[in-house]
């Protein structure tokens, strides 16, 4: 049984045309991972709908070293590699359904397509960040404000090699959500201590990354 309707596939295919360069999703999965099957099924379907989009499936339990290299700490977890097969520091933990399909599609187009660049003044600020910054954006699938926050976190990661950013689907990972005190989403944590709750302007995200 497919989780995608024909209409979904048509929409996705149209959308995925924006990916112009080879782009690879590396998925780390394991049995009993929350919505692991659905995640794999969706990503496989997406890879089938685009010549430029590729999927590599790994076993989370046995390929720990690679998972660690990409910062994948839970399954299903997946990262995006660019056309040179370089890790883009863009990561997802949990199923990208509901509104979160938009976070994934945005990241793919940002990496494999042509989009407007970040305004110069912002880019300069982001590039100056010279310490490691880890960003986690906790989301729910029914939250319309969440993809905006994920997109901003990922944009920071794409602009500076010191920054990594991930979406975390909060409902599937209650322990992690509890650890960071997630009670409203989008809930974005910078280096485990600085927090933005809500989808605020990009400059607020830059400021938190600077002070984290």
């Amino acid at each position: 049984m497919s989780i995608l309707t024909d209409e979904n596939k048509k929409q996705l295919k149209e959308f995925l045309k924006a990916i112009e360069r080879d782009t690879t999703i590396v998925l780390f999965n394991e049995e009993n991972a929350p919505a692991g099957n659905e995640t794999a099924e969706l990503l496989r379907a997406m890879a089938e709908l685009s010549d430029k989009l590729h999927l590599e499936e790994k076993d989370f339990a046995t390929e720990k070293a690679l998972a660690t290299e990409y910062g994948v700490h839970a399954a299903p977890g997946y990262v995006i590699l660019n056309d040179k097969k370089e890790f883009t520091r863009v990561r997802f933990i949990g199923v990208p359904l509901g509104h979160e399909i938009n976070s994934l599609l945005s990241a793919l187009v940002e990496i494999g397509g042509t989009t407007d660049p970040m305004p110069e003044a912002m880019l300069e600020r982001v590039k100056k960040i010279d310490k490691p910054v880890d960003i986690k954006v906790f989301v729910t699938l029914s939250c319309p404000h969440c993809p905006g926050a994920v997109q901003k976190a990922h944009a920071l990661a794409l602009a500076n090699p010191n920054i990594q950013a991930e979406m975390v689907e909060a409902q599937s990972f209650p322990e992690l959500s509890q650890k960071y005190g997630v009670g409203s989403v989008p809930h974005t944590v910078f280096n485990g201590h600085e927090t933005i709750i809500g989808n605020y302007p990009f400059e607020d995200f830059i400021a938190k990354a600077e002070s984290a």
Binding site: A18, G98, N102, E110, S142
Partner: peptide, 13 residues
């Protein structure tokens, strides 16, 4: 499944 892709070219910029 609530698949609601936004319009193409979704860059925040």
């Amino acid at each position: 499944l609530n698949l609601t892709p936004e319009k193409p070219a979704p860059s925040m910029f």
